[in-house]
């Protein structure tokens, strides 16, 4: 479904990501794990068209989408949920969701799905996004991304700023989406949560992909255990 080959990307000529290759197949949940500053955000931004890669290719469902701007990539079926959420703070929950379906009108079925998944959003449709709690904003960000009816949802650290209980809830929602057939690609530092959701994963280390494997394989990898699971 999504295939990244030899991707390099960075800022002002300095490549932060070097020669990264990975793939996500339809129906899978895949994680990219890495510590602060490893380059997860840079990698995702260059996949979803917010940053032009300096080298390499991004292919989605057989077509080359390298360098296609974000506003066009979302129309092809990839929705991105950035760590900063990027909601429209002065608009209501409902307006934020409606814009997720841009340029169309929001599809009532999709709206219902989002409301079922996040009953809190249903209760707070008229509240302004900027006045909601961090957890609610995260739900809204995912909900808005779903309104575009994507086939692949890409999330950058969806647990940023969330208390453990809320982080677990966020992953529960992702599990539900995945069970409905949505393909998930997620960057995470809270590795146990991501491992429980994902089939496979890649370890991003200083801008390079150092290890890959199924979640079980990664859970047994001594380096991963030490660096990300706090087990020695």
């Amino acid at each position: 479904m999504l295939e990244i080959t030899g991707l390099s990307a960075g800022y002002e000529g300095n490549d932060v990501i070097q020669d990264a290759s990975f793939r996500v197949d339809s129906g899978e949940a895949v994680m990219i794990i890495g510590s602060n500053g490893a380059g997860k955000t840079t990698l995702f931004r260059s996949v979803v068209g917010l940053l032009a890669p300096s080298l390499g290719a991004v292919r989605y469902e057989g077509t080359d989408i390298t360098g296609v701007p974000a506003q066009r990539i979302v129309r092809r079926g990839i929705s991105f949920v950035p760590a900063e959420r990027r909601l429209f703070p002065r608009m209501t929950v409902r307006e934020n969701l409606a814009l997720g379906a841009y340029p169309g009108r929001p599809d009532p079925k999709t709206m219902e799905l989002v409301m079922d998944l996040f009953p809190r959003l249903a209760e707070r449709q008229r509240q302004r996004a900027g006045t909601m709690s961090g957890g609610e904003q995260q739900m809204l960000a995912v909900g808005r991304a779903l309104m575009a009816d994507p086939s692949l949802i890409v999330l950058d650290e969806p647990t940023t700023g969330l208390a453990p209980k809320l982080a677990a809830d966020a992953y529960e929602a992702l599990g539900a989406l995945r069970d409905r057939g949505l393909t998930v690609l997620v960057a995470e530092q809270q590795v146990p949560l991501a491992m429980a959701l994902c089939d496979r994963g890649y370890v991003l280390d200083n801008g390079r992909i150092s290890t890959q494997g199924t979640s079980a394989e990664l859970a047994n990898d001594p380096d991963v255990r030490r660096a990300y699971l706090g087990i020695t």
Binding site: L50, A70, Q71, S79, P82, R90, P103, A148
Partner: peptide, 18 residues
């Protein structure tokens, strides 16, 4: 609404296809 969304958060607007 699309115009307002760009005023409020340009990157957010791009992410929904504007």
């Amino acid at each position: 609404r699309a115009v307002r969304s760009v005023i409020e958060d340009e990157e957010g607007a791009r992410l929904v296809g504007i």
